[in-house]
Amino acid sequence: MMMPAIRLDGAEAKFGDVVAVVPITLSIATGEKVALLGPSGAGKTTMLRLIGGEVRPSSGSIELHGRMIGDLAPGRELSSLVGMVHQQFDLVPNLSALQNTLAGNLGRWSLGRGLRSLVVPVDRHMAISALQRVGIDDKSAQRTSRLSGGEQQRVAIARVLVQDPSIVLADEPVASLDPARSKEILGALTTDSPDQQKTLVASMHSVEFARDHFDRLIGLRSGSLVFDSPATDVTDAMLDELYRI
């Protein structure tokens, strides 16, 4: 069997006494498109942050492409493996959309190159083409704080396109977008680069959309796994159970 892109082995997340994610064991293969479903507060975001190395597991372990996440050097190494699009507040409000997008390069740029780019943008075409793919290249010179919520989300996605990690984690990546645009953005996030297959794990609130566009659906409720099955096998009954008040 091929080495999985992501492997959680009894990974648990606790904040003080509050358990956000109960110990979970699962594997996600390279190239898989996985949607996390579940009511608000189910632990979707925490699970993404666990995989992204932003939250340390209180017990258990997480491996990315066969390497323990704690062994990966933060910055350069981790950012080439995994990139995350947060739901909000991802961007520096005082920088232009272009600079925020270019920041996806910081893991591979030298320090000097990064500083130089603040004055005269380096690899500008890269950021412009990423902004084009999410449809807001016309706003590249705008201050990010002047963009709407949906536009900011697209800039954050453009940044992760520039970062080009093999695993993309996205927290509600299309929450503020219309269906046609959502489809395009998901397409951009899952386009494989020539040398590697992309793995995508995204939390989604639109069940229909998740069923249509993802290979595998994972249902979370109160931090534990309710179901984990191929998108085609998920029944309405399972979803009703997941979202039951």
Partner: peptide
């Protein structure tokens, strides 16, 4: 934090 996860030192 987002910048850090994008690889910034």
């Amino acid at each position: 934090r987002s910048l850090q996860s994008a690889g910034a030192g």
